[in-house]
Amino acid sequence: MTDVKNLEELFQSKIDAEQKIEPKDWMPEKYRKTLIRQISQHAHSEVVGMLPEGNWITRAPNLRRKAILLAKVQDEAGHGLYLYSACETLGVSREQTIDDLLSGKAKYSSIFNYPTLSWADIGAIGWLVDGAAIMNQVMLCRTSYGPYARAMVRICKEESFHQRQGYEIMAVLAKGTPEQKEMAQDALNRWWWPSLMMFGPTDANSPHSAESMKWKIKRQSNDELRQTFIDRTVQQAEVIGLSIPDPDLKWNEATQHYDWGTIDWTEFNNVVAGNGPCNKERLVARNKAHDEGAWVREAALAHAAKKAKRKAA
């Protein structure tokens, strides 16, 4: 008992001294479990996140946009890989992690359960969804677990074009015909609130946050990150002449932040519980891709075995 207590103190003192925890270090079981859950959910989000955008690759308005969207979706696949690998350093198998996604046991970011109805949605996703993800990921570059932090540094570097390409799409549409501008505004209207939900429950309703902060897995609270995101994004919307769909939005001179309305948490909980517009569709698509790829994985193994045999002979 005393041993574990000493180990825990040593562990916490490393964290307090801003030292990273590495895979071979002793860590509390709960720290390991929390990280496995968080990193695998993060990985699943990268992978499922390819679906709503993939929907528009063949219908991108021109070759430039198509090449960009392909490159972005390709990046997200890579992000999934970096994160699955970081997760494996905690002693879980890749297979188990992916099985949990496919069976519906594991969660991924709820934002990807909304449909992409028009081309402007691709702009809104890059600008708002990647924008919100970047806020969170920049914080995670300083998370206490070494492999997770290193994956985040790499991801943040690659992310830097994602938000800009989305904002560029929105800016171009907003300057286009009245119909194009309306399309951009409609996308902003639909993606704004779900993007704010990406930061998770309010601090008052976020039971695991205190522990994650103590362990420096998280370094800023959900509400802090959400507020910074709002403050930055409102200015960007103004610049391109679009309006944020929140009648309560108002600059507060005293706090130097925007005051804003309330999130519909019933909607949030509904989507998390599996009842969003696309939850079923996303899981079906993932399972289909996994099943239909089975023969490729088997063939690659058979080919490798044959080559090894030929070399040995």
Partner: peptide, 9 residues
């Protein structure tokens, strides 16, 4: 190309 005046992007 980012629109003139846009910050934090």
């Amino acid at each position: 190309t980012m629109p003139e005046g846009a910050k934090y992007i």
